[in-house]
């Protein structure tokens, strides 16, 4: 049972959150004109590491915000939780660093 430190709500139980896939997928746009294989890689191909994994979760039964976690898939230790936002930082004391 994970205990996730939501930057907006504090430490909350795993059951309040939903996992939402790897964090750092770059979505090819129409303009990128990618090949079928490149598109398939974006859709399906995954690092799926046994160890540190960068992934996104959403605090479904909480603030509804998407978060970015660095989590160990073997030990389940959570190494980092960040706000998943690029634009404005409405809570200046919270680090805002999508894409690191």
């Amino acid at each position: 049972m994970h205990y996730i430190d939501c930057p907006w709500c504090g430490l909350r139980d795993e059951s309040e959150f939903s996992y939402g896939g790897p964090a750092d997928l770059i979505r090819p746009t129409l303009a990128d004109d990618v090949s079928d294989q490149e598109w398939a890689d974006y859709l399906f191909t995954r690092d799926n590491p046994c160890g540190e994994h960068h992934e996104r979760w959403v605090h479904t039964f909480g603030c509804g915000q998407w978060l970015r976690l660095v989590r160990d898939t073997l030990s389940h230790k959570i190494l980092r939780v960040d706000v998943l936002r690029k634009k404005q930082n409405i809570f200046p004391n919270i680090t805002d660093e999508r894409g690191i």
Binding site: V58, W66, L84, K87, R98
Partner: peptide
């Protein structure tokens, strides 16, 4: 919401 927050937050 997922698309809004994760892909097009701007």
């Amino acid at each position: 919401e997922e698309w809004r927050q994760c892909e097009w937050p701007d």
